[in-house]
Design a protein around this nucleic acid. Sequence first.
RNA 1: GGAGGAGUGGCCGAGAGGCUGAAGGCGGCGGUCUUGAAAACCGCUGGUCCGCAAGGGCUCGCAGGUUCGAAUCCUGCCUCCUCCGCCA
Length: 425
Amino acid sequence: MLDLKWVVANLDEARRRLATRGGGAAEALAPIEALAAERRQLIQASETQRAEQRKASEQMRALKGEEQARLRARLKTLSDEVKEKETRLKDVEEQIDRALLNVPNLPHETVPVGTSERDNQVMRAWGDKPAIDSPREHTEIGENLGLLDFERAAKVSGTRFVFYRGALARLELAVVHFFLDSARERGYLELLPPYLVNADSMRGTGQLPKFEEDLFKTTAGYYLIPTAEVPVTNYHRDEILEGARLPLKYTAFSPCFRSEAGSYGKDTKGIIRQHQFHKVELVRFERPESAHAALEELVRDAQAPLQRLGLHHRVVALCTADLGFASEKTYDLEVWLPGQNAYREISSCSTFGDFQARRAQIRFRPSQGDKPRLVATLNGSGLAVGRTVVAILENGQQRDGSVLLPAAIRPYMGGLERLMPAADR
RNA sequence: GGAGGAGUGGCCGAGAGGCUGAAGGCGGCGGUCUUGAAAACCGCUGGUCCGCAAGGGCUCGCAGGUUCGAAUCCUGCCUCCUCCGCCA
């Protein structure tokens, strides 16, 4: 959420910067100016009366009989007026909130301006494409080895679900542990979070109110997390952190649940886009002035395991049009998938500035005696597990149909070097 | 799921319609004293909103309500504890 005061004082700049996102991002700002003025006027009027009322109320104790009755009658009127103004004030503030909660974050000045993902900028690449003759896609590789079963998953659950079998099931969790080890080495504290959260948490990180249709909701009113970013960022909701403790760096493994509403026909094959997948997330709470340096470090932290797996990838700066709702600046990591002959997103690293912190009221005290300030929140995938498995399958595929595993993952697989056909029973 | 009990400032804990943003203690910060430290003593010590400021409003789990006036009374919700049941 943007700062109301700032927006009112800088309406033109806000409009201009939001416009670079496209899609009418600046629209929701329209009623803000008038509402803010009305809000201030109502606060001033009601508080003046309330002060008067309180002062006069003090005298009630000393008065008796007729005199007291007379004052009581006058105060009753005053009290009713105050209540009426406060009711209107509440309504106005709700309108302001409703408007502001639907306004996306301002793109940072360093974000390339663009109109679609084609305007994203490749910053750098790591490694080289492997030489593979007529590479096959992971689906074919996995199914041929008997390690992926989409048909039964469709029967048991539906589309966009999958069963892993045998060594591939083991590989998924091996990758999880490998990522967590990498994050721990880089100073991130591991959390194992809840996978169901309340609406306040979803609002805190920005999924609600605008993107409810992307989420799964339980009959009990909980939401399934679309990423561990939600529980981990909200871990410090409504807290004032000690400045000396910053930055706080957390890593968390979790399954992620996404309805993928509106992505019909997109990536329908394979495990690229599933309703449920695994991810290891990196989350940081930073002083605002460190946020952008921290983002660069976060990207390197996310790249590290990819490099140890020897997977060719590139770092892409998202342009204004491709930026997520809450993000101020985002770098995607795109891994090379020979079977698809394409780079695919395997991590997304963002800084949100104080956008999430304002919603979730996450603050820090710079040093003792100072007023609290909003922190900057950041997060990045470190990394998407399913897509990493896809990359391992497609980059490690051999002519005989087997898959050579990267050396770095073998210790997590009991020394297994190669994925071979699964025994059927 | 059933039956009870409880939620007050960083922490402990008083308060039971007005004088309570809230006693007292602990902790923290500053000072006196000391060669230094401890002890002792003195002072300060939540957040937020409106305002240039002076000042004022709100805030005792959350949301409503009663009242001229609510931490104190009423209603709903949330969380925690105890006992019973069920359960990975």
